[in-house]
Design a protein around this nucleic acid. Sequence first.
DNA 1: AGCACGCCGACT
DNA 2: GTCGGCGTGCTC
Length: 654
Amino acid sequence: MSDSRRVARVVLDSRLPQLSRLFDYLIPPELDVQQGVRVRVPLRSAKRLAEGYVIECSSETEHSGKLAAITELVSPVPVLPPRLWNLASAVASRSAGNAADVLRLAIPKRYVKAEKAWWRDGSALDSPQSDQWEAPVLEPTAPVASEVIGSGIRSSLSLPYGMTTSPTGTVVPRSRESVAHIAVQALAEGQSVIVVCPDWRDVEQCWAVLRDLVPDDRISLLAGDQPPAERYAHYLRTLEPTPVIVLGSRHAVYAPAHNLGLIIVLDDADSAHREPLAPYPHSRDVALLRNSMENVAVCFASVTPSLAVRRWIDMGYIAEHSAAGSTRPRVIPTSLTLGQEALSSPARLPSSVYQAVKVALNDGPVLIQVFRSGFSPGLSCAQCKSKASCAHCGGPLRKSSASSNPTCLWCGVVAARWACPECSSLTLQPRGQGIGRTVADLGKSFPSVAIIRSDGENRVVSVPDAPALVVATRGSEPVTPGGYAMVLLLDGAAMLQRDSLGALEESVHSWEHAVSYTADDGLCYVTDLDGPPAMALAAGTWTQLFRHELSQRVALKLPPALRIASLTGPSQDVDAICDAMRSLSPQIDSLGPVPVTDGAVLSVVRFPYALGESVVKELASWRQKMASGPRRTAVERVKIVVDDPLALDTLAGE
DNA sequence: AGCACGCCGACT
DNA sequence: GTCGGCGTGCTC
């Protein structure tokens, strides 16, 4: 009996922590069950079925009880190769979550029609492509490509500014062209490459370059708003024993591509790299996990490195490179050149900028980047306009009424006698009046010029090379042939002084992104911004400012100087977990709790990197424990998010 | 989560 | 007697 019977170890496709382990099932002889296939299995009773994946097949079981048998083979395609299982497990254990949740992000929904077509075409699994594709030689990129491609290399790559046009006539930022060229180079060396983009538009731009250089069947597109059947078909392509370029949004980072040699994470400072579903992984972290587990090269590519990447560069953990062909356009903060004129009338365009815009409009479109507010205004120094923060913990200060004393939202300390650390002024004022400048305002100033508006709801992909004022919220800037004659960055201070731990990094990312859309001989102006950020923006190097920010994070015990976990849920549960975590080590502390929606509270546990593994392990076991405790109704369970610095914003939020 | 098992109150 | 309430516990 024992020799002939086959046992499958199955991971169930379930969100429940208590089911987050492997279950053994008998394999009925009539089913052709292999490692990695999707199956349907009975759970607790014969009529209650769950789906799952076969992790391994064997002839033995650890389980002492009676084994049930697999009910059905959902599909014969092994969509979960062992390396993807290892990755999902690692991501889960790093984030105190379930591997099954990670698999749900990594493996697209099955589409029978797409699968049958793929199976029939015989591209499936056993037919390596003949190597007829002749790799193009891409001159300007080749030297830097050789720096970032190679076993286990970790790098940061500063991408070029400016706009170019693909051979087929698509307007593409040079930064995307560079990324595509590096991917082609790696593919030419016989390696698979994953390009993880924040946005669908970035995917299209890279693809516009790739499609001319690489055969269609060597590209796998995995983006969010793709038709699901197509997405599944493209996922199946990553299972073939042939190198491919996987190009997609954050889910693409898991792709189990053959002989994977390089993962490029494009614009890792973009918040779209954070998965909004449990266990909330970030593409950056997943890419680095694959670097350590699979010896894959990882390259963080953007026009300027993110804060996290700057930290790793300074630690010597990753190497810093610059792509060729990058000349940054001139960026002029009006506060530096115009002095008082700019500061005295920040609500309007300084007259010299107005004149410059009029001139630039003769050459083509002018881009105006605006910051859409949607944040509650905090307090600034009335004299030097710097952001007012708590002297005790660095948290944001708020006033509950005009006459009351400001209090810290993080630690609750009352700042009765606040004095500005920059200029010693004693007076505070509210900041962030909203979007002062609207499309209508500009219409009045430039009555005869076409105004094109692009924002999150209504995104314009590209505009022609003709005079127009293009007003875009950050991240929604259209491309234009040759780049913009002029770029204006408005609302600089409002963007920078948001009460968010991500304010500096996101501002820099938005600004540099817009700057990179400038024509080679174009000019950028930034209004309403002064001090070190304005000087850094003019100089085009953020290294010093980021280092300063990082040293402040160390002093204030904020990420990325240490790790955090945010806990949201019923007060007694959150408190119990916080107490347990603090008792692990005196180096562990917590902020909060503060009340959030419907009776739940939020606390943030802070812990050093060295204790990370044990803290996260402990969090996971608490999560498991609480799931099987006494029944709860209505009140949700505790939600645990590991290493999202923006959790501290929620802690500070209203 | 479901679903089964189990141990007390009102009913044909 | 026994039908069914829902409080606990487990799922190969």
